[in-house]
Amino acid sequence: MIDVLYFAWVRERIGLPKERIETGAATVADLVAELRAREERYEAAFADLSALRVAVDQELTDFDAPLANAREVAFFPPMTGG
């Protein structure tokens, strides 16, 4: 079981901030593929991965990152500031 968190427009497109998912996905990319196959709203949220950042257990990482023993995955747009 993995907690999956969505922020900003990812949350708006998917329609919820957080969900617990039973998955055997080996990597973040595998998890994204699983989610995209679920429903149109996930497809819409994950259509362009270059516009997304991902954190596994609160550490920024990339979509190739393994999910072994991960408890939490979060998706959000690139951060801006200044």
Partner: peptide
């Protein structure tokens, strides 16, 4: 401003 509690502090 929206943030990710836990990760932001870290």
């Amino acid at each position: 401003i929206e943030h990710y509690p836990g990760m932001t502090e870290r």
